[in-house]
Amino acid sequence: MELWLRFGALHIEDSSVDGSEEHKIRDQWLIASRGCFNGCVPDGIDEAVSTDIGRKIVTDAIYSLLAELKKAPDKLDRNVLNLMGCGEWIADFETYRLIELSEAILDLIDGKVGSGPEDTSFMLGCR
Rank of each mutant, 00 (worst) to 15 (best):
D27M: 09
V80K: 12
S15K: 06
D52E: 15
D43E: 08
S102I: 04
I57G: 02
F37G: 11
V58E: 02
E68S: 14
K71I: 10
F93P: 02
M123N: 10
P117V: 13
G114C: 07
D77V: 10
A91T: 13
I109R: 04
D43R: 05
E22I: 02
T59R: 08
S64W: 00
D119K: 10
K56V: 04
D52I: 14
K112M: 06
S50H: 14
L66K: 08
T120D: 07
A9G: 13
E2D: 10
S50L: 12
I25P: 08
Y63C: 05
G54L: 03
A104W: 13
Q28I: 11
D119R: 09
C86D: 05
G35L: 07
G39F: 08
L30I: 15
D14A: 09
D46Q: 03
G39L: 09
L66P: 01
D27Y: 02
L30H: 11
G44I: 00
R127N: 11
W29F: 15
V17G: 00
G19H: 07
V41S: 01
T95I: 09
A9M: 09
E13A: 13
K70Y: 10
D27I: 07
E103A: 01
G125W: 00
M84A: 15
A61M: 09
G44A: 14
S115I: 06
V113R: 10
A61S: 10
I99R: 07
L5D: 02
I53D: 14
F37S: 12
D46N: 02
G125S: 01
I57D: 08
I12R: 10
C40E: 13
S33A: 15
L65M: 15
D46K: 09
A9I: 05
S64M: 03
T59M: 00
G54F: 07
S15E: 08
G39K: 09
G39V: 07
R34Y: 04
W29K: 08
D60T: 04
L66Y: 05
K75Y: 15
Y96V: 12
W89G: 03
S64R: 06
M1G: 14
C86S: 14
V80W: 00
C126R: 14
D92H: 06
F122K: 07
V17H: 03
D92M: 02
I53N: 15
I109H: 03
R127T: 09
E88R: 11
D74F: 14
I109S: 06
S102C: 07
R127Q: 13
K112H: 03
N82C: 12
G114Y: 02
V113M: 11
L81C: 07
I109M: 01
S64P: 00
S121A: 12
A72V: 01
S121L: 05
I90D: 12
T59E: 10
M1S: 10
Q28Y: 00
T51Y: 04
P117Y: 15
G111Q: 03
E22L: 05
E94F: 12
R97L: 01
K24Y: 08
A9W: 05
R34V: 08
S16P: 03
E47W: 09
L10T: 05
D46Y: 03
D52N: 14
M84F: 15
